[in-house]
Design a protein around this nucleic acid. Structure first.
Lengths: 206, 206
DNA sequence: TCGCATCCGTAACCGCAATTACGGATAGCG
DNA sequence: CGCTATCCGTAATTGCGGTTACGGATGCGA
């Protein structure tokens, strides 16, 4: 099987895995169920992914790719506008069925491998970008001076709060897009009040 | 077995259960291991708790009792001082090994029973108390006017952030008491800046 | 065309832990 | 003193799902 063909096949398998997860929870993602749903054999699954944890690690990696592609908005343009666009999207993503299922799987993994991968490709990748955007906003005067890393942590705390753990334990349903938008807006407004811009020249829009 | 004797025996069993959890993770809490550690029989465990989920529910209930006893500080005296004392304790509790293990167990429970119990006896019990304290602080002028419930949510978000889910997936170790204290202080300071007290008479101390 | 590698489908194998069953001991109680 | 209820200790039972094994099909290079 040529390399690109195999890439495509893996994408199919992982898509089937996510379909199982989103439909029946991460408990529904058994190797047998995946083999049947993807039309693959056990032998292939184990040859390609090693074991069940490896499969989940691959899912984490794929999720990270998808997430990163939706985050390019942070790179350029008005940083505050970028944060305003990022907030709802990020919130919806981390409280979505996929991310929640991955979190549950990581919580159930005694080795911590999955959790480390999830954190590395998720939070640890996103927060520095947010800190960069905040630093640019501070440079422009759209936010008052301060430690960008600390401000980014505060923003994340305001935006996400404890929603993820509450989702993980099934205490709350997935928030609606409207809820995500409102919460993101409130988080950004609070960030502005915690780092109030100096008065004379509030911001640029270039 | 008389009722009080049985109460004491249950307390022993549940203490043994927590000891197992804190030592080897929630995966180490098997019914057999608990029976041996507590010197109890399978028959008794199943007669008293029904099944494994029932056992965890009992652990949640006991944890809630212990937590509530440490929260009486919110009732009286200076509300801001009460929040200042509560913050580090609450943060240390929800990121402690016990609470994290219960969260993991709830995440692994497909029925959501455990998660509902955990939320009801935990967050849903605490946040209204915090809102009450904030309302009193607003009345006294120690905080500026606003919606106490909303302010309580903000305080929780600032205090806890996403620490719980990161603990659950083993992305971070348990925070030290110093870290808890610093974070709680920062959260309260931020709350003051988001709800700045009016100038003339900042607070009372009665 | 032949041989090899890889894949599919299905069927074992296997360990683990929840759950159930049972015999012996002990305490309250008429 | 027997009787009953409850508990302890240990041993089956059971089901589930990860993992492994194997026979047949398919494609690809020599």
């Amino acid at each position: 099987m040529k390399a690109d063909r195999r890439q495509a096949r893996q994408a199919e398998i992982e898509a089937a895995a996510y379909a199982l997860i989103e439909q029946g929870g991460e408990g529904a993602l058994t190797m047998q169920a995946l083999a049947r749903a993807a039309g693959a054999s056990m032998e292939t699954l184990y040859r390609w992914y090693g074991d069940r944890t490896g499969l989940f690690a691959a899912l984490v990696a794929r999720n990270a790719e998808d997430a990163a592609s939706g985050m390019s908005m942070l790179a350029d343009g008005d940083p505050m506008a970028a944060l305003a666009r990022l907030g709802p999207k990020l919130l919806a993503m981390v409280t979505g069925d996929r991310a929640v299922a991955l979190n549950r799987a990581a919580a159930a993994d005694p080795t911590g491998t999955l959790g480390a991968a999830l954190a590395a490709s998720g939070r640890d990748a996103v927060v520095p970008r947010i800190a960069d955007a905040i630093a640019r906003a501070m440079d422009r005067g759209a936010l008052g001076p301060g430690d960008p890393a600390e401000a980014a942590e505060t923003f994340i705390a305001l935006l996400l709060g404890d929603l993820q753990i509450r989702r993980a334990i099934r205490a709350i349903p997935a928030p609606s897009p409207d809820t995500c938008a409102a919460r993101a807006e409130a988080a950004l407004a609070a960030l502005r009040r915690l780092y109030p811009p100096v008065l004379d020249e509030p911001a640029r829009t270039d």
